[in-house]
C-alpha cells in the first residue's frame, strides 16, 4: 500500500493536532492514537514529529500545556488549545480547501 509522505503532510500536522484539541485537552499518546484511528491506520505520526509540533504550537501561543494526573495515576502533560490556536486552525482549514482545490485540478486518473 502506498504510504503517506511525511513531506507532504508536514504542513498539516499542526492542523491535525489542533483538530483533536478543539474538542478537549489531550496528551501525546492519545493524540497519536486518535490520528491513527481516524486515519484508519493510514497515517502514523512519529513521536518526534508530534513532540516537535507541540513545542512549535506552544511557542506560537496556539496551545498551552499543563500537567495532570491520569486515571491510572500516571502524570502526563496535557495540551489545551488557545483562542489564537482556534483561529489558526480555521485559517489552516481554509488554506487546505484552497490547496486541495488547486492540486485536484492536476490529479488525473488517466495516464
Amino acid at each position: 500500500m502506498q504510504e503517506i509522505s511525511s513531506d507532504v503532510i508536514r504542513g498539516y500536522n499542526d492542523t491535525i493536532i489542533l483538530f483533536f484539541l478543539r474538542e478537549e485537552p489531550s496528551y501525546g499518546y492519545e493524540i497519536s492514537r486518535n490520528i491513527k484511528t481516524l486515519s484508519e491506520n493510514k497515517y502514523l505520526i512519529k513521536e518526534t514529529t508530534l513532540y516537535s509540533a507541540f513545542t512549535r504550537l506552544e511557542k506560537n501561543g496556539y496551545i498551552t500545556s499543563f500537567s495532570k494526573e491520569a486515571e491510572n495515576g500516571k502524570r502526563r502533560t496535557y495540551y489545551q488549545i488557545t483562542d489564537s490556536g482556534l483561529e489558526y486552525y480555521r485559517e489552516k482549514c481554509e488554506e487546505w480547501q484552497l490547496t486541495k482545490d488547486v492540486i485536484e485540478r492536476f490529479i488525473s486518473e488517466k495516464n
Binding site: 496528551y27 501525546g28 499518546y29 492519545e30 497519536s32 513521536e47 518526534t48 508530534l50 513532540y51 507541540f54 500516571k74 502526563r76 502533560t77
Partner: peptide
Amino acid sequence: SELLSMMEDK
C-alpha cells in the same frame, strides 16, 4: 520525558 511518556503509553 515527554517522548518517554508517549513511548510508555504505546
